[in-house]
Simulated assay, not measured.
Amino acid sequence: MRDALTLRGNHALLTRANPLAKFSGVVLITVALALSIDWVSASVALAFELLLFPLAGLTLALLWQRGWPLILAAAVGGWSTAILAPDHGRILLDVGIWSISEGSLQLGLGFLLRGLAIALPAVLLMSCTDPTDLADALAQQAKLPHRFVLGTLAAMRLVGLMAEEWQTIGMARRARGVGSHGNPAQRLKATLGQSFGLMVQAVRRASRLAVTMEARGFGGAQRTWARKATFSRLDAWVVLGGLLISGAAVAAAVAAGTWNMVFLGQQ
């Protein structure tokens, strides 16, 4: 609820755009990046994406706070690719059990940058989109089934509650002396126990929510809308921006000679 109020009070440009328009822009960028594993196209797309964050009222600190798991995953994936990929070109580092060559380093760097360039638009989309507005657009404009839309809305609302629930369970367990000490195996066991408690709470909360929504007529055939979802000139610019970013990334890679259509078997 607090995040929704924050979004409503945020007058940044992208927060006012239609959720489906923002989603379309993210899809356009993702498709272009999924076609190649080169570092040039990923670098160009990433540079443009970082320029978009101020338009959503976000900072680099908030980016790290909300997207650090994805950033770390991309870093680990890039490093793993660099040391496990076949050697090609001059050997840059050789420690016996693994080595890094010019070709494997370029491949790992491309994987890292591409992972970041694909993850950041998703973080941007979720950070500047109110779940209720997204549900309205999915139901009114995308014509998706009401039950699917309401389930998606409930899931998005419960994500923040589950994070708070995890902290509450952790503090309660530490108050009883569980999970606050011991060797790594004991701490792992305590974490698994806390995860099971969170799962039980999630099932209970989902059951109560389902009963409440059914009692209030959310499954009815006739629906009315408090807010009308519409497309505006801003939404057209958002979609065009996604198309331009994807086109610029592809054009830069082709011009640099690094474009690599991995799905077509080109090297």
Rank of each mutant, 00 (worst) to 15 (best):
residue 186 Q to H: 13
residue 186 Q to D: 15
residue 203 V to Q: 06
residue 186 Q to E: 15
residue 168 T to R: 12
residue 162 M to I: 13
residue 203 V to H: 03
residue 185 A to F: 14
residue 165 E to Y: 01
residue 155 A to H: 06
residue 157 R to M: 05
residue 145 P to T: 05
residue 182 G to I: 11
residue 188 L to S: 10
residue 155 A to M: 12
residue 162 M to S: 03
residue 199 M to C: 05
residue 196 F to L: 05
residue 210 A to Q: 08
residue 197 G to Y: 06
residue 177 G to Y: 10
residue 177 G to S: 01
residue 195 S to G: 02
residue 204 R to I: 15
residue 201 Q to W: 09
residue 153 L to Y: 01
residue 177 G to L: 07
residue 190 A to H: 02
residue 179 G to L: 01
residue 212 T to Q: 09
residue 203 V to A: 08
residue 168 T to W: 10
residue 201 Q to K: 10
residue 199 M to K: 03
residue 189 K to C: 09
residue 177 G to W: 10
residue 198 L to P: 01
residue 214 E to N: 15
residue 152 T to I: 11
residue 170 G to N: 07
residue 176 R to L: 14
residue 158 L to G: 02
residue 208 R to C: 06
residue 161 L to S: 09
residue 202 A to S: 11
residue 163 A to T: 07
residue 162 M to N: 06
residue 187 R to K: 15
residue 182 G to D: 05
residue 197 G to W: 08
residue 160 G to R: 01
residue 191 T to F: 15
residue 195 S to I: 02
residue 169 I to A: 13
residue 166 W to P: 00
residue 171 M to F: 12
residue 186 Q to A: 14
residue 206 A to E: 01
residue 191 T to Q: 12
residue 155 A to K: 00
residue 204 R to C: 12
residue 177 G to H: 08
residue 187 R to D: 07
residue 198 L to A: 08
residue 178 V to D: 06
residue 180 S to Y: 09
residue 214 E to Y: 11
residue 192 L to I: 14
residue 185 A to L: 15
residue 214 E to S: 14
residue 163 A to I: 11
residue 180 S to P: 06
residue 175 A to C: 10
residue 156 M to N: 02
residue 153 L to I: 08
residue 160 G to P: 04
residue 175 A to D: 13
residue 196 F to D: 05
residue 162 M to K: 00
residue 189 K to P: 11
residue 177 G to T: 04
residue 173 R to M: 11
residue 208 R to H: 13
residue 202 A to W: 03
residue 214 E to Q: 15
residue 168 T to F: 12
residue 200 V to Q: 13
residue 193 G to Q: 01
residue 173 R to K: 09
residue 149 V to G: 03
residue 212 T to G: 12
residue 152 T to E: 03
residue 156 M to I: 09
residue 158 L to Y: 02
residue 151 G to T: 00
residue 215 A to K: 13
residue 179 G to K: 01
residue 215 A to W: 04
residue 160 G to W: 07
residue 174 R to Y: 07
residue 197 G to I: 01
residue 213 M to G: 00
residue 210 A to F: 01
residue 194 Q to V: 10
residue 168 T to K: 03
residue 187 R to I: 06
residue 185 A to N: 13
residue 175 A to N: 11
residue 177 G to R: 07
residue 173 R to C: 00
residue 191 T to H: 12
residue 205 R to L: 03
residue 167 Q to F: 04
residue 202 A to M: 11
residue 208 R to F: 11
residue 144 L to Q: 14
residue 180 S to G: 15
residue 194 Q to M: 08
residue 182 G to K: 07
residue 209 L to H: 08
residue 206 A to R: 02
residue 157 R to E: 02
residue 168 T to Q: 04
residue 144 L to W: 15
residue 161 L to V: 12
residue 160 G to M: 07
residue 148 F to I: 11
residue 171 M to G: 00
residue 170 G to V: 05
residue 215 A to P: 07
